[in-house]
Design a protein around this nucleic acid. Structure first.
Lengths: 350, 350
DNA sequence: CTGAAAGCGCTTACAG
DNA sequence: CTGAAAGCGCTTACAG
């Protein structure tokens, strides 16, 4: 084998690699692990051969010896919102910076057990769930994990029994939005898509009611919803239909709060198509602060989920748990929302 | 240990599991692998214990014995478009149905080597790249993979040396769009964001020119771009600026083709804000056929990438390669686009 | 300073 | 029909 050989062999084990270098497996292993007390010449030789061959240690063999895994399993929901994608991407980046590897799998509702089994069989160090999942199903999975002593973290899916959760403070978010609208003089409110059995929805409604009561108003009299009259297939279409639906009311609310930005945009365009002016005739607020908030005229006021902060907290929580035995008490942390005011909210028409 | 014990032990190896069942590791292993010639009673016992304990075989040990891995590494680009997310999600679903597992990692430009090393060390069966990557960097990674005898597949990032590629036929897509506009009487065309060093962009421009020449027109005289006057940070904003920019021309084109839907929507809203009517005064076409195409009035004509078909082809290509030795000839397949005509394209103003 | 040997958790010839 | 033993690719006491 000449030094100028351009085609080094593909090496798949330390045994082969040691033979190639001309040293024992032990010595090679020690160099690879950066141990001290080795002849400089040997270190050089191993390093050079590593460069030449591009050899990588077999992660499976490595794990079989070393017990503790540096791999974190990430389950993301199958219907991915841009917000969720951002979280996944940031999470992986931050874990990588701390020497951990995130392995992502899409969690299908009907295959959740199978996916989790795969992570278990990989003996991952911890599992993170990002997104909204079927609550009972998720609770079962988390029981499994607890039994196996594997720490977990749920981002967003609040209200799951025994789940360690990090989530946006939705009560606070909606209280803030509502207070803002109250100060602008609005007294009649329309909800767009804020209904249903999710805990996240309950929290948002609670925030709205809280703010209203603080202003001495009765939620039952000033909050209106038409969600029950339409079907949700696509957020935008749903928003359009709700917009139309509200226009048919004799006394239309002057302020609207939507479950997300898509729904808000759907309604906004519908209102404008009817000849209503925003924010002169009515105000409207989205949720998530996505790019489409900038795509309407006027631009859409919306609640920002503070994704970077969320992921920061998630990662540090994860690291704390990683060393420790699994805690018996469930842990929850809330993230402060940021309400971004733009042109779609203005003083109530008198 | 009573039969009604509610808290079965957590078992982490076949040795422990075999002891729990009261059989040898060999027998347990045979049951787990569904081999024939075993006493029915023992099969029952193992199955029951499996159910009780939730034991999973250690994937690492499994792999160490079994050589061939059923894991496919998926690299997705760090800036995820909704289209890319859809592809990743569908890909994982389809691989799962075929007994393979997709492990996803976000490929950061500066860490591409590290990510690939991780997949190599996991000894994955193949690697799929989804999205747009730095062409030279990707080419290097693919050389590495070829050297290691690991099959790969690139979805979307066309024009990479020696890469097996599956991509949308962008030449055809744009030829079709252009022909459609020509038939509507348009003769002057504005490009919105269709410029730059990417092969995908070259292909699209080629398609446009092709169609023009077929109609006896000189591309140099009827295609206009203002991309060089503005900076791209966010597609939508970029589209707005381009829209403004075109409005300042003495002779404005009557038909516009955008690099993606966001850019098209940005320009469309800008045109409308200036008082121009779509499609009466001008026509505009997006790309990707995302949800936002439905959010404008009129709705946006756009090119659909046919994601399901793309993933289908990707998976079958992957399965073909998985058994075989790595082929020396690079392989490319093109997917037929679908041009979806909506209200934003109409007869040219005379 | 370096090497031979044991062991991590599996499966599969090889005996019985 | 079932069990003891070897071996996959690593690392780390244990000798030398």
């Amino acid at each position: 084998l000449t030094k100028t050989s351009r085609k080094p062999p593909v090496i798949r084990s330390t045994a082969e690699f040691a033979a190639y270098v001309g040293l024992s497996r032990s010595t090679v292993s020690r160099v690879l692990n950066g141990q001290s007390g080795l002849r400089a010449k040997n270190i050089q030789r191993v390093r050079a051969a590593l460069e030449e061959t591009g050899f990588t240690l077999n992660a499976h063999a490595l794990h079989l010896r070393g017990k503790r895994s540096t791999v974190i399993g990430v389950c993301m929901e199958n219907f991915l919102t841009p917000t969720a994608v951002m979280k996944v991407s940031l999470l992986q980046q931050q874990l990588r910076e701390r020497g951990l590897t995130a392995l992502i799998e899409v969690l299908e509702p009907q295959a959740s057990r199978k996916t989790l089994q795969h992570f278990l069989s990989l003996r991952v160090g911890a599992i993170v769930f990002i997104g909204h999942f079927e609550s009972e199903d998720l609770a079962e999975r988390i029981d499994d994990l607890n039994r196996h002593g594997i720490p977990h973290l749920v981002i967003d899916a609040v209200g799951v029994d025994r789940a360690n959760t990090i989530s946006l403070d939705r009560v606070k978010a909606m209280a803030e939005v509502t207070t803002h609208l109250l100060k602008l003089g609005h007294r009649q409110f329309g909800l767009l898509g804020i209904s249903g059995a999710f805990q996240t929805v309950n929290d948002r409604v609670r925030g709205i009611h809280q703010a209203l009561r603080r202003h001495g108003l009765d939620p039952a009299k000033c909050v209106h919803s038409r969600d029950h009259l339409h079907t949700r297939k696509n957020h935008f279409e749903f928003g359009s239909q709700l917009g139309q639906s509200f226009c048919q009311l004799p006394h239309m609310p002057t302020a609207f709060m939507a479950v997300n930005d898509d729904t808000a945009v759907g309604a906004l365009l519908e209102f404008q198509a009817t000849g209503l002016r925003v924010p002169d005739d009515l105000s409207i607020v989205g949720f998530n602060n996505q790019n489409i908030c900038l795509m309407t005229r006027p631009q859409l006021s919306s609640v920002d989920q503070q994704i970077e902060r969320t992921v920061d907290v998630a990662v540090s929580t994860l690291l704390e748990q990683l060393g420790e035995p699994v805690r018996r008490q469930k842990m929850t942390r809330q993230i402060e929302p940021l309400f971004v005011v733009r042109g779609s909210t203005g003083p109530a028409k008198r």
